[in-house]
Design a protein around this nucleic acid. Sequence first.
DNA 1: CCTTAAAATGTAAGCGCTTACATTTCATGA
DNA 2: TCATGAAATGTAAGCGCTTACATTTTAAGG
Lengths: 335, 335
Amino acid sequence: MTIYDISKKAGVSIATVSRVLNGSDKVRPSTRKKVLDIIEKYEYTPNAFARGMGLHSLKTIGILCADSSDLFLAKAVYFLEQELQANGYESILCCTGYNLDIKKNYVDLILSKKVDGIILVGSNFIGTDEEENQYIKEASAQIPIMLLNAAFDYPNVYSTLCDDYAAMSEAASAMLNAGIRDILYLYNSDSYSGQKKLKGFKAAMERHGVDGYEKLIYCYDGPPQRVRDVAKFVESIARETPFRGVIAAEDELAIGAIKNAQNHGVRIPEDLSVIGYNNSMLTCCCTPELTSVDNRLESQTHQLVQTLLGVLSGEEMPKQSVFSGKLIKRGTTLF
Amino acid sequence: MTIYDISKKAGVSIATVSRVLNGSDKVRPSTRKKVLDIIEKYEYTPNAFARGMGLHSLKTIGILCADSSDLFLAKAVYFLEQELQANGYESILCCTGYNLDIKKNYVDLILSKKVDGIILVGSNFIGTDEEENQYIKEASAQIPIMLLNAAFDYPNVYSTLCDDYAAMSEAASAMLNAGIRDILYLYNSDSYSGQKKLKGFKAAMERHGVDGYEKLIYCYDGPPQRVRDVAKFVESIARETPFRGVIAAEDELAIGAIKNAQNHGVRIPEDLSVIGYNNSMLTCCCTPELTSVDNRLESQTHQLVQTLLGVLSGEEMPKQSVFSGKLIKRGTTLF
DNA sequence: CCTTAAAATGTAAGCGCTTACATTTCATGA
DNA sequence: TCATGAAATGTAAGCGCTTACATTTTAAGG
């Protein structure tokens, strides 16, 4: 079933069928109906490839993320997918895994699908040195590049993010104000927003004049989902240096700390206060519930798609949309 | 940059370039190198649409799932995506949401992308009455349909699943053997495998001669991720009927039950035994850790992709691959 | 060095669609 | 009724690629 068959059966030319298909222009209502009836009757669907070839677009967005089974990323992907779909776009998902040396390959791959835009989900797509980000510059020459929860200043690159610095700083201050000064800070290798959170934490510690807090800053390398391993990691730290507070850059890490505490009979929040980050579903999976920073994922995804749609339709759009994080207080903290 | 430009620069015909591109046939090594050098130099990537038009395939698989942020589905999608990618296929993800009346639309949508196959992730794609599954029959006339964790007997439809009936039956028996007979069974609307689990539970209860166990079978309708709501739901049940065991068809539901118990000072596992299902990361996010049934997701996804690849290359493949679930015993049970 | 068949390469016809431009149809006012 | 321009429709030229088939090159045997 091609456009030719339809045109023949409807007694019109292929151009007319094509016009009907594209909802375009001026087609007499009676003609339109005639064609649509035939299309309906034969359950015709246009060939996407041929279509893309003519249209140079298939209303498809490429979504790249490291690991769609990561709680935060999965949620982001879901929101994005829904939002795009609601706006008539489809998404190609591509999980890069955590080895991001080959980021460029994935971007090329997805570019070759002739997507209309690319969304990079998660801040680990942004490297620390300039050369590492070359691939973004190249890709942005072709189509808009959208960053969720990260920022990169370059033409045709747009981002949404949470003010992680401020949010983490606020979280740390809250704990410090409650008189807890020996705080274990747990983070993982998430580059861009990870750096900002860390800086926010440090700033708060300095502001409150805490000495030697760096001793208790630890990076857990490995998939954060492996909560059991995180707990072991925390156990090894606790053997060396005692602490009465934990602030984690991801909820998973916080849960690992809680787990270790409960394994050792440490009471939460009486003996140990814990703050996570992302306000994920994990916050309500432990007892007591986890205090956590909400980084406005839903707002971010919404804004990102709106920005993308704007850009695609030629509007001038904000390069960067920043949302304020918010500390959601629950049972793992006394304050 | 088209294949013409490359052919010109390399001093060969477009056919030769195309052959090099497709790794095909007989091209003299020297010629191949010459062409590849030019391709490399100009960073040429073939147009996917034009390619698909000729090849009638773009090595792309459509993945449909209700909600990629659901723990189980997210993990499945991730495994599938990785496995497909490792085999040179890409994936188009499409989240249908939980309103599955419109399943057919999504399948059509993804069919129009000319994917080589469709993977339906999660058993809620299979309806209970025949007509509801019509859309699968239609789609399977065009391309292979793969079902993860569900089954449907029809030509060109392949499935992998866990023997949920046996696994759930085993779980219930374990609890019954430990002397716990007042068991709350929590499930949600997940149709196909949900039915099997429920049947497995009932069978075990009958086999052990438990009377009136149906009173404690409850369906929680709503997104299982909303653990707080699940906990409230369980609370309302507990007010009516006491129980000393909980078996849940999803880990999320089990966590909700644990949460409610801990809110009320009920000790786990002394006063209450809990078994979940899926063996997800949630099992280690609570204290004590959650006993859960592993439904072999990773094996299933692996097998599913292998089967799909086999089918696509014309081999005869098993219509259905069944894996045995396994009860992973942890801290929420005494046995 | 010539024949011959195999190997390598080239030629050109699509694939199914969009769209600029050409042509026909239609409605309007004179 | 007829000219006239607008609206509707048709014609045909691509889009960038694959591939059957035609042609040329190569190498081996006589």
